[in-house]
Amino acid sequence: MSPLDTSAARSAAPLRSDLALIARMVDRGARVLDIGCSDGALLDHLIREREVVGRGIELSQRNVNACVARGLSVIQGDADTDLVEYPARAFDYAILSLTLQATRDPRRVLEQMVRIARHAIVSFPNFGHWQVRLHLTLRGRMPVTDSLPEAWYETPNIHFCTIRDFIALCEACGLEIEETLVLRNDRPQKGLLGSIWGGPLANLLGEKAIFRLRKD
């Protein structure tokens, strides 16, 4: 890559819709840690569009190198082990998008997030979705769906949960749920269906959920 084609290296591809929804939860100019930042798409968007001070942690060295080469501040690291290093309240937002289910100790990761940041934003695939339930009920096999495409023996997702499971964990950890979005086809559901207060229905129809949390 020539050092001059900065703009080409950072082409503004449209942001994945669930990431765009997360981005809207972040205040302008905030300090953000994106945990499991992948290729840096969300981080880049937040820095450009919302003028945040952004950092990333990513497990894959290949992704890290690509992020740094596009000018993002990213380190190779592991959500399970490396969050303890950061001082308390170092960030305004700690973001964990579709990564919680791949961590070894989701509860500890969540607790670390609300320690190092004023708000935690967490998104995850909902294992309570009707397709998952149907798959398991009718076929008696571990579900393989569009949003969960890997077979059980090769999936990095080792800690699945449903929306209701997650709410229970938040309660157990004493976390305040500030905002929730329940997604179907990557679009936020409106009214009761889109709210965790939709209870069993939201848990049945939502494919993914995004939670904004805090702990005082």
């Binding site: 060295q61 890290v64 990213v74 380190i75 190779q76």
Partner: peptide
Amino acid sequence: VVHALNAVAADVSFVEIE
């Protein structure tokens, strides 16, 4: 070095080249 920089929430990138 990266760990130490994280501990003070410094702006740090870290790359290991194969």
